[in-house]
Design a protein around this nucleic acid. Structure first.
Lengths: 230, 230, 230, 230
DNA sequence: TATGAATGAGCATTCATTCAT
DNA sequence: CATGAATGAATGCTCATTCAT
């Protein structure tokens, strides 16, 4: 099982082995259910060495989050090549995103599921990464709109909301794709682009959709991710 | 603390108290971090009684999932009143969904976060519920399209994909709304309808979006939720 | 080994058994070297029960200190019967002290050796007890002096210093007696009374002893437990 | 931190650095709580080197005890200059003792507190040193008594008892002085000489004190440091 | 119906100690 | 002479689970 038990290797290498094992274990078992014993064994080292290099379970988890967050954002940025038009950038960024999450399902699980479930510290780490991606997508949408000579004074808030929704949908799709065998990254990206471009509007009657005024019902509070209705 | 400690009450009532406590604890702490001690205390009963009624931590968690899944699907179905036109049904179904998830954040956390994080058994339980909702939404979209005299031979697979994306986006939004104070259910529903109807297509040039054929790159697997491109 | 493994006894009884085992183990091994495993086994219970009743190793140690401190002060007070003249009270108090420390050597070790070696919290607990005893002895000396019509305006500080020295000597003697087989409490008390009453002055020339003024040598700081020299 | 990290120095020097670090660490943390890691770091060397030179934690501790015991006895003997009259010798010996314990508080803690707390082996090492000092003091008292033409046939056992009590009181005072800022060695010595010379006898009526014959009560064992009563 | 008493098993963490270089 | 790499063995503590009443 696990890495081949090669003795006496430099610290940097061992650390990566440990992080590999940790991401896999945390991703599959969850933060709490993952035991340091299991991680150490999977990494092919003894537990004290894990503590010597990574300090504690919390620090180890944080290190996993950081490594995976960095890898993901870099993959997305590398995917969306800036020389392309904005819609193509969005498409290839999404493809890169789905490719990456499919290739490193445990890493994705750590970021999207595990980190959000165990304490503010971890969640904040991921929130930073997410904010970065949302900002990136927002930028893409703005550029695309400008290139299409549309809505020059499009309210930034609405665009942010759309970006937020798009990223949220992408995250959901990534989870779903990882749980469903046989889905390619390009398919996921296509589904999402299709949804985002044509939406349901094409399928149905109205070009815009306006909520009814009636509908008494329990409400909660105020101010969503986007100016919700026109 | 917890339920008032009234002795000798019928089993059904006690069980509900326990489930209330369990949903709250599981939702806030997570499956592993929740301790049977805490649940029992919050329910106002002794631990052995919890075991007498609910057997084990796993069974207790399963019972929570089932109860919350039932409550959620019933809320959504009740919200989407069948006498309305399909788009209004979708709107009110979404509103009901966001209202419910906002009212029972712990229940929603159990379903959407905790259940997916701890073993196939729990995940399957939730997957069933989700499939039911996706089917329901798919149905709504089809009806809406038919009512709008659009795309009569619209491929069912594509519609499923859109439904899947819509549900995914809704789930993401629900999480986001629960974490962000001041967001109403109607706002969330409006945001999502807006996104789904107008999408980004309105903002940009093309009515439809077609992926490029090139782009050699790492793929993952096959057969997605929808044939993503026409 | 340990207590007979009688099952199902009331909490209060079990707690005393645990404290017995803990005092013995802490007294013999020291705070750090004593393991909760060993204590639990000696008490005839499982480790979780020890934690259930006594919370933590620190709390357990504190409970030991408190119990032993109380037992010791009570023994001394009970020994020094107030109807006797002061010198007799001192003698019988000392005898009670040495009897107690000889009977509960582990308890004495916990108080005098272990508690002082592991953190301010524990030390403070013992310091309070010690202060109480010093005050008691100071009182006895003052009464004795008054009864003997001596030094009516005897400086209180000097008396405190003598009490401090007497208690210190008693503590040392108690340790020594516990480490040396065959020393009775009355012998220890006698030695100390002899020392305190007659001192070395009787054996040597001067009635009072005055330090020389010369003696250059490294000093430390200021203000001892007693006005050291007349 | 610790010693300056100079490479390649002779073994003897390195060993002293290690012992310095060890005495400090053992004295402050205690035998169990002191970690070889900390000692090595404080000594400015790697852990394997400590093991190469000092073998094991036990051996290291023993070496500390021996070094500090030797230093202490030598300081006391050097302090009590034999050309002086006996009482002056006692005084200057005590001053030397308090000076030494104040200058090397960690060494004194190792000898008086730590060594007695962790196993017979260490305790025996210290007991030997203590016996030597007691013998020395006994000798001084005998000489002083002879010089004063007092009690020519004073029973040796009683003198031993007094010496024992004196040393015990000195040890107590040394601890107390180290824990109390502002106490000089001369003050401590003065306090003790005062106590020893005048004692409480001066304050009270009787020149000698004789214990009552009655008082039935629980005794412990036999053969103490002195035949306490005449 | 309901619970106080009790535990087996596991977990994060640390430490003294040793190779291989 | 000196050390970076590595571990076996505890240790404090917690938790799901079960009796005996």
């Amino acid at each position: 099982m696990g890495a081949v038990k090669t003795k006496r290797m430099p610290r940097a290498v061992r650390e990566q082995q440990m992080l590999d094992a940790a991401v896999r274990t945390f991703g599959q078992r969850g933060y709490m259910a993952a035991s340091m014993d299991e991680i150490a064994e999977l990494a092919g080292v003894s537990k004290p060495l894990v503590y010597l290099y990574l300090n504690s379970k919390e620090d180890l988890f944080t290190a996993c989050i950081r490594r995976e967050a960095k890898a993901l954002t870099e993959a997305v940025r590398a995917g969306a090549r800036p020389e392309l038009p904005a819609d193509r950038q969005l498409w290839s960024g999404l493809t890169a995103f789905f490719t990456h999450t499919a290739r490193r399902p445990d890493g994705w699980a750590v970021l999207h599921i595990q980190a959000r479930t165990h304490g503010e510290v971890f969640a904040a780490e991921v929130a930073a990464m997410r904010a970065e991606i949302v900002a990136f997508v927002t930028q893409l949408i703005l550029v695309a709109a400008r290139d299409a000579h549309r809505d020059p004074d499009l309210p930034e808030r609405e665009v942010s909301g759309l970006a937020e929704a798009l990223v949220g949908a992408a995250e959901s799709l990534a989870d779903w794709a990882n749980a469903t065998p046989g889905v390619t990254a390009r398919q996921s990206a296509g589904t999402l682009m299709n949804f985002a471009w044509a939406g349901l509007g094409d399928l149905m009657a109205g070009r815009r959709w306006t909520p009814p005024d009636d509908e008494p019902g329990p409400e909660t509070a105020q101010s969503g991710p986007t100016s919700p209705v026109t």
